[in-house]
Design a binder for these strands. Sequence first.
DNA 1: GTGATTGCAAATCTTTTGCACTAAA
DNA 2: TTTAGTGCAAAAGATTTGCAATCAC
Lengths: 139, 139
Amino acid sequence: MAAQRPYSDLINRLKTVGLRPTRQRLALARLLFSRGDRHLTAEQLHGEAVAARVPVSLATVYNALHQFTNTGLLREVIVEPGRSYFDTNVTDHHHFFHEDSGHLEDIAGEDVRLVALPAPPKGKRVRRVDVIIRVHLGD
Amino acid sequence: MAAQRPYSDLINRLKTVGLRPTRQRLALARLLFSRGDRHLTAEQLHGEAVAARVPVSLATVYNALHQFTNTGLLREVIVEPGRSYFDTNVTDHHHFFHEDSGHLEDIAGEDVRLVALPAPPKGKRVRRVDVIIRVHLGD
DNA sequence: GTGATTGCAAATCTTTTGCACTAAA
DNA sequence: TTTAGTGCAAAAGATTTGCAATCAC
């Protein structure tokens, strides 16, 4: 069990990136950042909020997730058409994607080494390199 | 200009994977496979079919794209939430994704070398490794 | 107070589905 | 024939949007 992150921590975290620490952003941040690395969909986070008796609308969950992503608090992971996962681990790393269960699993950045990456096209800048290892139950 | 692939070729290609060479599958296959490597969305392919005066419904385009994908004629590439690209290049390779334009660009498989890939979780089998290099206009 | 944030419901977008009709073998 | 494939329109899911009400500062 990770200790519950004190509210003052979360408040500072939000203020640091320029977001007002509102009731719902704080509640969502606490759900996201108080239990280690997580991979959640908007729907899942909304469900947790409701379960925790934090009334928040799905639209606000989407707003918060995107604001957190844009400010570097979260990272969006795209592995399935029609569903986005948000990853609380924003360090350099990659993912196993379990196709059977829809589950994501982190791979530490140093456990994948990319060699001889081609140069980006002229005038373009690399924003990120995603490595997704898709696995399923053996046949 | 690539020479137009003769219909007999396409017919055999479809038959080989167990798909009946129907009018619309043939027309879609010709659009897909007669111009080198392409990355198309269902909507784009449907637009091309309509432009080529091949009346085909969007539902049938989706059906065909998935059938082609399941039989190994196409590969699905997922880089954006809520939109799937289908890649006519089914050899082992990776992608640049141009975030500004939504454009995909192939990277030959041998131009990316992955070293020290972590072992897949117990009981799991690697189906595919996707490397996506996200690029955008330099700042 | 004042401007940022929220909630709700409606709208949007992509993709899937059900089912009668059509075409390939 | 017989069975697979198609088209349409409706449904489904995820996400976004518009706008009045509410909250943080």
